[in-house]
Nucleic acid binder design. Sequence first.
DNA 1: CATGAATGAGACTTCATTCAT
DNA 2: CATGAATGAAGTCTCATTCAT
Lengths: 209, 209, 209, 209
Amino acid sequence: MDTVLLKSPPGPRPAAPVGKREQTKVQNRTMILEAARRVFAELGYGATTVRDIIRATPLASGTFYNYFKSKEEVYQALRDEVALKVRPRLRDARRQATSREEFLTSSFRAFFQFVADDRGGGQPAPERFRMDSPEVLAGFAELREDISDAMARGLLPSTDAAALAAALTGVAFELAERIKAGANVEATTRFATALFLGGLEALPKNPEV
Amino acid sequence: MDTVLLKSPPGPRPAAPVGKREQTKVQNRTMILEAARRVFAELGYGATTVRDIIRATPLASGTFYNYFKSKEEVYQALRDEVALKVRPRLRDARRQATSREEFLTSSFRAFFQFVADDRGGGQPAPERFRMDSPEVLAGFAELREDISDAMARGLLPSTDAAALAAALTGVAFELAERIKAGANVEATTRFATALFLGGLEALPKNPEV
Amino acid sequence: MDTVLLKSPPGPRPAAPVGKREQTKVQNRTMILEAARRVFAELGYGATTVRDIIRATPLASGTFYNYFKSKEEVYQALRDEVALKVRPRLRDARRQATSREEFLTSSFRAFFQFVADDRGGGQPAPERFRMDSPEVLAGFAELREDISDAMARGLLPSTDAAALAAALTGVAFELAERIKAGANVEATTRFATALFLGGLEALPKNPEV
Amino acid sequence: MDTVLLKSPPGPRPAAPVGKREQTKVQNRTMILEAARRVFAELGYGATTVRDIIRATPLASGTFYNYFKSKEEVYQALRDEVALKVRPRLRDARRQATSREEFLTSSFRAFFQFVADDRGGGQPAPERFRMDSPEVLAGFAELREDISDAMARGLLPSTDAAALAAALTGVAFELAERIKAGANVEATTRFATALFLGGLEALPKNPEV
DNA sequence: CATGAATGAGACTTCATTCAT
DNA sequence: CATGAATGAAGTCTCATTCAT
């Protein structure tokens, strides 16, 4: 019976599946994802409901389930989508780095810039910490990955890798909050870079953390 | 055996009412607070419901409302209670510090030790970031306060105070996660201290973050 | 059979959406309103709960909130609906009256007849007074309005308008209770009319109630 | 065993049971009743809860149940108490009446005065009708009783007794609302009296309502 | 007796999800 | 597919009532 449907338009077959149907489908999916992004940012993952997401959309409640099975699934999709956007930036920053300073600077800059670009949305977050939003989690995951690679490549000293990753992550996260509040990306990048450039020299040689 | 108890305090009678009723009240309040601590840690603040807290308790549903008006109120109470425990330790650490190194070392140690002592609770959080748990927030607030004081006293260089506070906070938090996972308090303290001792030297002189 | 339905209206298509969905919506709304009417009549407004109303219905609990936000809102709707039915009758009675007697007679008759027509509902109210039922309140408001108009038109003597309105209202209401219990509409109308025809003559000329 | 109790005090036997215990008991009972009176007046019988009554009292919740089994029971007690206070006034007014006018005047006056005396309490009733308060019910019951007696004694014409009772009740009730709102008792009494003096003459001789 | 905390039933309301249209 | 009303489970909170103190 699908055949029947496919046959019915006797005109020229579309070159790609970008009929009105497919277009709408993509649009709706995008609408839901963006609505979810806004709502997660405002209420946090735990507190947002599927209803909240639908309400931030012109779509009907039932439509949500044509695209996602649950809140969890939108979350995953959002996470993947964000990771897809951030990964190249960070990977590029990392690959082009030829010195420890450049590695730190470009990594922090890429991350802070991403946060700065993303903060547009809504009113300032009602609660201080919104660590469970997909963007932030994806950003952190990427940062960690970059750090591990850098250690492997010798750009960072061979101290306790996990501890350093944690320290970098923590600094990046906390300063990111300041970025969200309007702090300057470049100055913040310099600050973080200087801190770690100096700190890395002083770290215990044979750490046993 | 009652006789023994009745005899034992030959000194001044305690002023506080310690009838069976008061005892039960204190016990119940504690039960709710500890249940809330566990549930917040597991589900996050946003996702936990009052029912979740009650269910982690042998008490009846209505009993919750004899002690707290809402989830928010337990949260505040938890936050206050934790702050009350951490504040003295950190304050002492700060007051007794006579050098930059000592300031950093004793602050980190006090914080990490507190986290280590406190980590008994539940299973590790299923999601990576749980920044909105009361303990963490309270710890952060205290740490920030200590940092500001130290800057005023000259133990820390006059760089961007807020940015440094954020960096210290971030590192403390992320390393605390490792402490919770079993990392050694002293080694972690050394790591963090060394990182900041070196980093502070390298920080930009006239920061404009 | 669909064919029959599709064929049947050869005239102009009705503008109102009368799909199965809309039909069900109207039916459900009506079910809730009628259930509310019965329950208010039986328990009184104060004592009835939303659950009472739902239970007097085959609908699920959540469905109530698709139609009304609260008990108060059903009450308002009921009130409005009843007022909508009574207003024309009383307005007609008032407009066509050319004498004092006719004004009283037709007003009382219209009101009593409405009560008689409407009394189908439930068992007699278990408590004597149930002034807060929507029908009664709406009827009173209408009666008052009519009285004011009549005074303005000279059909009623210029005594204390509000007091007379109250008296007419009170008599109408109490006799309406008798109507509900089966009293004859015409005889009751004659009784009330005679009472006020005589009474109006005797009222104080310059009232200062 | 009662004997034992009576014997126990070897001193002079108290003339009446007005020990401290009995005094407190009477006071508490009175407090509950007056609180209930206020709350019923404000919220209506149906909407008030036992909690509401206790809260309007300095007593503990459990204490309520030492005096009354339920809201219903307080209501009955209040009703009885009020009836006990009103009956003498109305009975006196009725007994001393020697003419139709005097009967009507003194009855209305007594009722309106009672309502006026009683209205002190709280803020104006949030809803228009509060017919289910014990005072109003008791007042109406008494009024009806008086009317029946008056008919029996020939002070009122032999028309449909029940219909007249209803009319008098309705007028008394509606005007009582005006009294509560501050209307003058004497003027209102004159108004109601005049209305019925004139109206009674005009009533159908052989009513068949 | 007075007290007031505990209890669990039940009221109000929102939610995720389904399904007829 | 989109729609949005229906559903009933579940959450929030209040209530009447009991009972240990």
